[in-house]
Each structure stands twice: as C-alpha cells, then as structure tokens.
Simulated scan of single mutants.
Amino acid sequence: MAVSPLPALDTYSEQNSSFTVKHMGLVAYETAWQAMKDFTRTRTSLTSDEIWLLQHPAVYTQGIAGKPEHLLVDSNIAVIKTDRGGQITYHGPGQIIAYLLLDIRRLKLGVRELVKRMETAVIHLLNEYQIKAHGRKDMPGVYVDAAKIASLGLKIKKDCCYHGIALNVDMDLKPFSAINPCGYTGLEVTQTKDLGIEDDLDVLSYKLSDYLQKELVNKGPDISL
C-alpha cells in the first residue's frame, strides 16, 4: 500500500489500477466539500478516479432541493446548504462517508446506474453479515426492513461526480429525530452496530471501499431494488 499525505487533510492513500482510495479520518464538512469541488474543477481526462473515506463532526446537510421545514426543531447542530441532490440528512462520528470523485463518462455510467451500483455495494456488504438489505425505487438509499441505514447524494458536473454515500455504523442516532431524514416524515434509521455487526468502522470502511470498486468497474450480480 502506497502511503501519501494529502495537503490540508490528514490522509493516507491506497492505489490500485482503477482508483485512488484515501482514508481521511475526521474532517469538517466544509473542508471536505471544498476539497471535492477543487478536485473536480481541476481534474483532467487523465486524472485517476478517487474514493474518499472519512467521518464528519456532527452536521446537518441540506441538498439543493431541500426544504427548511424538514428540520423539525431548533438545534445547536449547524445546518449547511450544499450542492448535492436530495433533502436534509445528518452526519456525525461513527458514520462512514464514502465520497466518489469519478469521471462517469469514462466509466460509462449513467446517473441512475451509478446510484444503483452504490446501493448494491452497501447491500453486498450487509449480506456478508447475513443482513438482508434492499433499495427502494421511490427513496434512494439502502434499507433494512423499513429503516434506512445508508443515504446518498451526488453532484454531477461536466460528466464527473462528487459527494457519495453515508453508512451508519456506530453513532448517536438521536439527531435524526430532529429532522425528516431525506425529506420523509417518520422515516426510521438504523446502524450496523444495532443489527449485531461487531466489526468496527475501520474494517467496514475497507470492505465498503472494496465493494464500491467492484461495482463501479464490473457489473456485479443483479439485485432487485
């Protein structure tokens, strides 16, 4: 594994033939967001695609179509209006964030197919632990029964994407009760710890990265969403 620092972020990297995977630790949302925009703005046709794995301090993020009424109560947690799709969600320590900085034209992926493959990667990860998960056509993300365990949002710019997917692992879920998660009233949320998965965030980060890379490069087994 090649180890290299990313300026301004405490990072180490692993490089394979298709992707650079960067493990960044705990990063402020605004810092990561600006870094994604800078990366996408300056990338060229020769730039390697990257997957960034990290956590955020407690923050609510509201997508470009986000409605303020989905924040149900006042909170001391900041709300940041961002440029991804979707409504409002919560990020905090103990949640894996996988940001995908991809040239989707080079990967020959449409947005809908990309979303499905992101969801499928999480579904395969949970299946490894005998947890049956699924996607929903009407509500992007990954669900166990009726509870959401992973949310996603993307920004597409000049055939490239950034933002990505968030998987709840071992976090304080109470801040979700102050919002309609992803804009849906009464939507329950869950996490891997509460489903009996004992592997920690580091182990699950590596596994999620592997599943994402496989799905992005080669179409895996079909999973009905």
Results as ranks from 00 to 15, higher is better:
residue 73 V to G: 08
residue 28 A to M: 09
residue 69 E to D: 14
residue 30 E to Q: 12
residue 53 L to W: 04
residue 18 S to A: 12
residue 53 L to A: 05
residue 97 I to P: 07
residue 86 G to C: 15
residue 91 H to I: 07
residue 72 L to N: 06
residue 99 Y to D: 07
residue 124 H to T: 03
residue 66 G to N: 09
residue 15 Q to K: 14
residue 118 M to T: 06
residue 69 E to G: 10
residue 35 A to D: 07
residue 97 I to G: 06
residue 127 N to V: 05
residue 38 D to S: 13
residue 39 F to M: 08
residue 61 T to W: 05
residue 35 A to Q: 04
residue 21 V to C: 05
residue 114 L to K: 13
residue 17 S to W: 13
residue 22 K to R: 10
residue 64 I to W: 04
residue 83 D to F: 00
residue 64 I to M: 12
residue 136 R to Q: 13
residue 45 S to K: 15
residue 60 Y to K: 05
residue 27 V to I: 03
residue 70 H to P: 00
residue 78 A to E: 11
residue 90 Y to F: 14
residue 84 R to W: 09
residue 121 A to L: 12
residue 51 I to G: 02
residue 127 N to I: 00
residue 122 V to C: 05
residue 20 T to M: 15
residue 25 G to K: 06
residue 53 L to C: 03
residue 93 P to K: 05
residue 126 L to M: 15
residue 20 T to Q: 06
residue 113 E to M: 12
residue 22 K to E: 13
residue 125 L to Y: 00
residue 46 L to Q: 11
residue 118 M to E: 13
residue 19 F to N: 03
residue 67 K to E: 11
residue 20 T to E: 15
residue 117 R to H: 08
residue 77 I to W: 02
residue 49 D to F: 11
residue 21 V to A: 08
residue 27 V to R: 06
residue 102 L to C: 12
residue 29 Y to K: 10
residue 50 E to C: 10
residue 66 G to A: 01
residue 126 L to P: 00
residue 30 E to W: 01
residue 106 R to Q: 09
residue 88 I to L: 06
residue 81 K to M: 02
residue 19 F to K: 02
residue 26 L to M: 08
residue 132 K to V: 15
residue 40 T to H: 05
residue 74 D to H: 09
residue 41 R to T: 12
residue 81 K to P: 09
residue 121 A to F: 04
residue 97 I to K: 01
residue 89 T to I: 13
residue 99 Y to R: 03
residue 127 N to F: 05
residue 15 Q to R: 11
residue 117 R to C: 13
residue 90 Y to C: 10
residue 68 P to G: 07
residue 50 E to K: 02
residue 22 K to Q: 10
residue 83 D to M: 06
residue 42 T to R: 14
residue 75 S to C: 06
residue 139 M to P: 00
residue 78 A to G: 00
